[in-house]
Computed example of a mutant assay.
Amino acid sequence: MERSVGPGMSTTGSTPDADETCAYCESPIFAHDPICVRDCDDDCGSPAYFCNYACLSAYVDERGLPAGNACEWSPEE
């Protein structure tokens, strides 16, 4: 499956193994609502699978991943 993710960019996805576990809580992902995430700033490395958005959010927060990754806005500008 080829999916466009931006101008000139694409990624290939495949269905994970039936016994794939969540990168955060290690539960079987297909027992929930799975999410696949790739770091496409680094050659779209191996995917990380999460069983739901709560685990993805906790994973991101605990690792401080949003820090410095967003545009800065100031009401004075």
Score class of each variant (00 low, 15 high):
M1H: 10
M1A: 15
E2H: 15
S4M: 12
S4P: 08
S4V: 14
V5K: 08
V5S: 10
V5E: 07
V5M: 08
G6E: 05
P7Y: 04
P7C: 02
G8V: 03
M9H: 09
T11W: 07
T11H: 07
T11N: 04
T12A: 11
T12M: 11
T12R: 15
G13A: 13
G13F: 13
G13C: 12
G13K: 07
S14H: 07
S14N: 11
P16V: 04
P16T: 00
D17G: 06
D17A: 14
D17Y: 08
A18P: 03
A18V: 15
A18R: 13
A18C: 05
E20L: 06
C22V: 03
A23I: 03
Y24N: 14
Y24G: 00
Y24Q: 15
Y24I: 02
C25K: 02
C25D: 07
C25L: 05
E26V: 06
E26W: 04
E26P: 00
E26A: 13
I29S: 01
I29Q: 01
F30S: 00
A31R: 10
A31L: 08
A31V: 03
H32L: 06
D33E: 14
D33T: 11
D33R: 13
C36K: 12
C36Y: 03
V37F: 03
V37T: 04
R38S: 01
R38A: 01
D39A: 05
C40T: 07
D41N: 08
D41T: 13
D42L: 13
D43G: 12
D43R: 14
D43I: 07
D43T: 11
D43N: 14
G45S: 13
G45Q: 12
S46D: 12
P47W: 03
P47S: 08
A48L: 14
A48Q: 11
Y49G: 02
N52D: 13
N52G: 07
N52Y: 03
Y53T: 09
C55D: 01
L56H: 02
L56E: 07
L56M: 08
L56S: 02
A58F: 09
Y59G: 01
V60E: 05
D61H: 10
D61W: 08
D61L: 11
E62D: 15
E62H: 09
R63V: 08
G64M: 06
G64W: 03
L65F: 10
L65R: 10
G68Q: 06
A70H: 14
C71D: 11
C71V: 12
E72M: 11
E72N: 12
S74V: 09
S74I: 05
S74K: 12
P75I: 02
E77D: 15
E77P: 00
